[in-house]
């Protein structure tokens, strides 16, 4: 782990504050370890305040079983389908789904990877994008 000079200085000052005169090598080590782990937690916490609603768009040549393959993949991953809209334009299949991934154990990236596997299998393009991009572009 790399720490900057400033960070080290900060931890040292905090340790001095906490221990004062009573410092022994053992107590110093303990305090420093506590400070270190608390500062790492802050860095690693993946806070995401935006909603878990994402939009799935898929299109490609129409074949049987596209909707069922995609939706079973989603249900396997605990994704909730909120809305679905599907059209066949000439030979092309187009489907747009709004799904909620907040209950899924997998994160956005992992779900995206699962879907890209399916996408190769059934030969349709699948895009997964967070809802916000559509909200920002098409709603004031």
């Amino acid at each position: 782990m790399k720490l900057s000079d400033d960070k080290i200085r900060e931890i040292v000052l905090e340790a001095i504050d906490t221990l004062g005169e009573k410092a022994t090598p053992d107590t110093v080590r303990k305090v420093v370890e506590e400070k270190l782990s608390s500062s790492i937690e802050i860095n690693d916490s993946k806070k995401d305040l935006s909603s878990g609603r994402v939009i799935l768009t898929s299109f490609g040549k129409n074949t049987t079983g596209i909707v069922s393959t995609i939706s079973s993949c989603l249900s396997n991953n605990n994704c909730d389908i909120l809305d679905i809209s599907q059209k066949i334009m000439q030979e092309f299949f187009t489907m747009i789904m709004m799904i909620d991934i907040s209950n899924s154990k997998k994160d956005f990236k992992e779900i995206q990877e699962e879907l890209s596997k399916i996408s190769e299998q059934i030969k349709v393009k699948i895009y997964l994008q967070h809802e916000d991009v559509f909200k920002y572009m098409h709603r004031i």
């Binding site: 939009i55 809305d83 747009i96 895009y127 994008q129 559509f134 098409h138």
Partner: peptide
């Protein structure tokens, strides 16, 4: 669906094509 079909396709067309 809170977004129109065309709106979603428009966004995807912009970034993909």
């Amino acid at each position: 669906m809170p977004y129109e079909f065309e709106e979603i396709l428009e966004t995807i067309k912009m970034s993909e094509i």
